[in-house]
Design a protein around this nucleic acid. Structure first.
Length: 611
DNA sequence: TTAGGGTTAG
């Protein structure tokens, strides 16, 4: 952060604005005019109004009036107004008596609330110290919030130092914002926890800040366990706490826990804000009960674009693309203006349901009718859609014609499709190029290794493995979670850590025998190791999905549904095996993988193999 | 005459 540069910028604005002002006759120190301007600013909530008042300020010669300028700054979130006001204030260097804590706080707050100029809040804070204006207990929540938005941990630590120096470390507002700030900085969660643990008295905001921090980072079990501690501590959670807890449930796929949270909300009378309803909808949709999500959505009195998006994305994940499209049309019909995010949901709905032509039409509609500039995510959806439909060459052509640089995610989508649809040479070529550009990303090597496995080229495959070992890279282990009773169990491949492991492995063997009788043929090319066929089958049999399903078959009543959550995409062998299990054992199996839901029933999967 | 925590995305 270069404060002097910032100051120069501010002064530049000042000069041009003074030039405008000097052309107008000024009647300075006009008390009545000041009052009039303040009154106008009171009712100033839009940019056109603000511009009008701006003209008044200049006409009346009030551009040097700190009261007017402070008000002008604080009423607007418009960066132009904030820059304008701060420029004038700091051009008055001759009269530094004007600079007080309140004035700085107002400007710091205004900058902290902007989307892209939070760094200016920090500049103003530095300027404040340079002018020897003392910060007070209100200054730090503003400046820490700005720092949270920037996500700069070192800056945060230095602000923490100032908080201690000025003695505001006992103020609960400052402490809470500090927890929040540390949660937002890369690698800051432990510092956040330290501040949190050392707090004397925590209120619901303190707990929410910490739980929310864990939830955002995907440390969902920590979020849930902290929520339990909050209850033990006797602090009453509010609707904001519940949003974070629900977000953690969503991440874990913990439907039972999510349902418990819902009943807790009802029982405790937690205010059901739009945001809380949205979080509930998202939880139900992503934990496998999209119908419940729809029901909640239909019962909402007020909906936001997030509500619509949550349901559309939910339907997309369940492969109910036609309904997602219908809901999108209903949304447009009801006058809601779509944003870029809802289009990502809509395009992914088309992708997961094989609606290629609809998807292409919506992409055009987005650009032509709604003026949304497609982001890489939208292009990614289109590539994914073409790939799933097996149109690899179309997808490649699409990528080559994209006006923006394809990111590695787009390339990996294409590579995966090449592998799945047997375009192995093309896949190998793209992957080699990708590895040259992104040599330290482990999944690129895994992709190449998978392609060689499919080519039965064990030698090249081994070389990739060795290369990964030399570079110290490891494959992310696949794991599957299952919720049973009040516990969440997690399995990894070949997992023997569970107390029931011998029964689970026996069950897996039994499943294998039954499946073979029913005609199941193991897809051995999915196995990444170079071993003979019999061992390969063995490795496939102990994939985390199969262990979790065996565990569920052992511990749940016959005929009941089984819900499992996989951290990566389900492998094609487990996908095929689960179809057989659903028929043989007469169980509905609902599997969420990294991309979508698979509802297995009677030997079929809802994804219709569009995965 | 000022303050803290939350939701949607391949």
């Amino acid at each position: 952060m270069q404060f002097p540069t910032q100051k120069r910028k501010l002064l530049k604005v000042t000069e041009s604005t003074i030039a405008i002002a000097s052309t107008i006759h000024c009647s300075a120190n006009n008390r009545a005019a000041e009052q009039r301007c303040l009154a106008l600013l009171q009712d100033c909530n839009s940019l056109p109004k603000l511009t009008q008042v701006h003209t008044h300020i200049l006409k009346l010669g009030l551009q040097n009036n700190p009261l007017v300028l402070t008000k002008f700054t604080s009423t607007s979130s418009d960066i132009y107004a904030i820059d304008y006001a701060s420029s004038f204030l700091f051009s008055l260097e001759s009269d530094t008596r004007l600079y007080d804590t309140f004035l700085f706080n107002t400007i710091i707050r205004a900058y902290a609330q902007t989307n892209h100029s939070k760094d200016k809040a920090i500049c103003m804070y530095n300027l404040m110290l340079e002018y020897n204006v003392l910060p007070n207990k209100f200054t730090y929540p503003f400046v820490l919030k700005a720092c949270a938005g920037i996500g700069n941990l070192n800056l945060g630590k230095s602000l923490h130092g100032s908080v201690l120096k000025f003695g505001f470390d006992n103020d609960v507002h400052v402490q809470n914002t500090m927890v929040h700030m540390y949660c937002c900085g890369r690698g800051g969660i432990e510092f956040a926890r330290k501040v949190f643990d050392e707090m004397g008295k925590m209120d619901s905001v303190s707990w929410s800040a910490m739980i929310g921090g864990y939830a955002r980072l995907g440390m969902s079990t920590d979020a849930v366990s902290l929520f339990r501690q909050m209850q033990i501590a006797g602090v009453c959670p509010d609707e904001i706490t519940m949003v974070s807890v629900l977000s953690a449930c969503t991440d874990l796929g913990a439907l039972e826990l999510g349902k418990w949270v819902e009943s807790y909300i009802e029982k405790e009378g937690v205010q059901k804000t739009v945001e809380l309803c949205n979080a509930l909808i998202d939880m139900f949709a992503k934990c496998g009960n999209v119908d419940k999500a729809i029901k909640l959505f239909r019962n909402m009195e007020e909906r936001t674009i997030v509500s619509w998006t949550s349901v559309i994305v939910g339907l997309a994940m369940h492969g109910r693309g036609v309904e997602a499209v219908a809901l999108f049309e209903e949304m447009i019909g009801s006058g809601v203006v779509p944003d870029d995010v809802v289009f990502i949901g809509l395009l992914s709905a088309c992708s997961h349901s094989g609606l290629v032509d609809r998807g292409r039409d919506y992409f055009d509609l987005m650009v032509k009718n709604f003026g949304i500039v497609p982001k890489i995510e939208h292009y990614g959806c289109m590539v994914d859609m073409l790939c799933r439909a097996g149109l690899i060459r179309d997808a490649l052509e699409f990528v080559q014609q994209m006006p923006i640089e394809p990111n590695p995610i787009v390339w990996r989508t294409l590579i995966n499709a090449c592998r799945a649809h047997g375009e192995l040479k093309l896949g190998e070529k793209i992957t080699r190029q990708l590895i040259r550009n992104e040599p330290m990303h482990e999944s690129n090597y895994v992709l190449l290794s998978n392609i060689y496995a499919k080519m039965f080229n064990w030698e090249k495959k081994m070389r990739i493995r060795e290369l990964m070992d030399r570079k110290g890279m490891k494959k992310i282990p696949g794991s599957t979670m299952i919720e049973l009773g009040n516990e969440i169990y997690e399995f990894v491949a070949g997992d023997k850590s569970h107390y029931q492991y011998s029964e689970i492995f026996e069950m897996v063997d039994e499943m294998g025998r039954e499946m073979k009788q029913a005609g199941y043929v193991p897809t051995t090319s999915e196995v990444l190791l170079d071993i003979d066929n019999e061992d390969k089958e063995d490795t496939l049999n102990t994939h985390s999905e199969k262990l979790a399903i065996a565990f569920a078959l052992l511990n749940t009543p016959p005929g009941t549904s089984i819900r499992i959550v996989k951290n990566l995409r389900v492998c094609s062998d487990c996908h095929s095996a689960t179809k057989f299990v659903s028929k043989i054992y007469n169980r509905e199996i609902i599997m969420r993988d990294r991309n979508r839901f698979h509802h297995f029933k009677d030997g079929m999967c809802s994804c219709r193999d569009f995965w």
